[in-house]
């Protein structure tokens, strides 16, 4: 198949149902039977990649899911579902085996996964199973003119490396929030398919999920606070600001180390890396290891009483002042803004 860009337009007419050749397979990750935003993002990404290559995009959904055909709206030309209840939870051996069967059957050459805990757990495994070249945490489409190259942040965001994927098959994980999914298609009729599952070796005892708020890795807006808060008893103003904004909360490492906040809120080099649209940091100095987890945010707002705090160098907007005054004032201003609609 010629994958040079000159053929893109002509090949958009490529008819999926006549040919079984599907070149891009996307994992339609589900949680409790539902899709999350990250799934729509990777489907859309997969479709854009398929268009650039002049091929089609198939979404593979594992487990029992409500309305899998809706993935057609974000660009899936075809949706395949293996609705075996064993696949409702992730066992990397089972997921990999199914993905390999589908990739082989469809002679797919690219697998796209979300850069979620699920996608990260699978990427290496799937790469070996299908004998593919793997690159994780990409935030833009690859260049597929002749060779396939794709860029991703390295050294905790201090540089960008361009990777060349030399194998005939490729596995890519896409960072959340790096592409805005658009409704470019219509729902499709999902096809139920069978797959051979290897015996499950992992027994799941218990699943604990934070209910209510958006999980931090997926949040578009994040309010974060650090040691400048003085103690856990002061977090009310942060929570109120987050609630007013509809944001998730995060913290710096010393804060979670001291058990002021739960460890899953810890962002940075040793915590989680996030890339929200807005990261608002109050009372965080902006140490390099903290920035490592947040410098892919689109907009950074820093509130710190020290004008020399290193965080201001990485910020788009800054407020030099006492957070105990500034944060409540900001919450008030936001409430006023929201009530004006």
């Amino acid at each position: 198949m010629n994958s040079s860009a000159c053929c893109t337009r002509k090949q958009k007419l490529f008819n999926v149902s006549e040919s079984r050749e599907t070149m891009v397979i996307v994992l339609g990750e589900q949680q409790n039977g539902k899709f999350k935003k990250a799934t729509f993002e990777v489907v859309y990404y997969g479709k854009k990649l398929a268009e650039a290559k002049g091929t089609s995009c198939t979404a593979l959904v594992l487990g029992e899911v409500e309305d899998p055909g809706q993935l057609g709206r974000y660009g899936a030309d075809q949706v395949l579902v293996v609705s075996d209840p064993e696949l409702n939870t992730l066992d990397t051996q089972q997921y990999t085996a199914v993905m390999k069967q589908i990739v082989d059957q469809h002679q797919a050459d690219t697998v796209v996964l979300p850069h979620s805990t699920t996608g990260k757990a699978l990427a290496g495994r799937v790469g070996i199973a299908i004998d593919g070249s793997v690159v994780t945490a990409v935030n833009a489409l690859p260049e597929v003119n002749g060779s396939c190259t794709v860029s991703r942040p390295v050294f905790a965001g201090k540089a960008i490396a361009t990777y060349q994927l030399n194998g005939p098959r490729k596995v890519i994980t896409v960072t959340g929030n790096s592409i805005k999914p658009e409704e470019i298609g219509a729902p499709v009729q999902a096809e139920q398919i069978q797959a051979d599952l290897p015996a499950r070796k992992v027994r799941i005892k218990e699943v604990k999920r934070a209910t209510g708020s958006t999980p931090l890795p997926e949040a578009e807006l994040v309010v974060s606070a650090g040691r400048g808060m003085k103690g856990p008893e002061n977090w009310g103003i942060i929570e109120e600001l987050a609630e007013t904004l509809g944001a998730a909360t995060a913290c710096s490492r010393p804060v979670s180390d001291a058990d002021w906040r739960p460890h899953h809120e810890h962002v940075g080099q040793t915590g989680i890396a996030i890339s929200p649209n807005l990261y608002l940091a109050a009372g965080i100095s902006g140490a390099i290891q903290h920035l490592a987890g947040v410098n892919n945010s689109k907009v950074i707002v820093v509130i710190n009483k020290d004008p020399e705090a290193p965080f201001f160098k990485a910020a788009d907007y800054g407020v030099v002042g006492d957070l105990f005054e500034v944060v409540p004032r900001l919450t008030e201003a936001l409430k006023k803004f929201k009530s004006q609609g």
Partner: peptide, 17 residues
């Protein structure tokens, strides 16, 4: 199977407002 062909530095942040 995979190789890094180039490195770049991220675009400079414009000064904080």
């Amino acid at each position: 199977d995979v190789e890094i062909v180039a490195y770049t530095l991220p675009p400079e942040k414009s000064a904080v407002k």
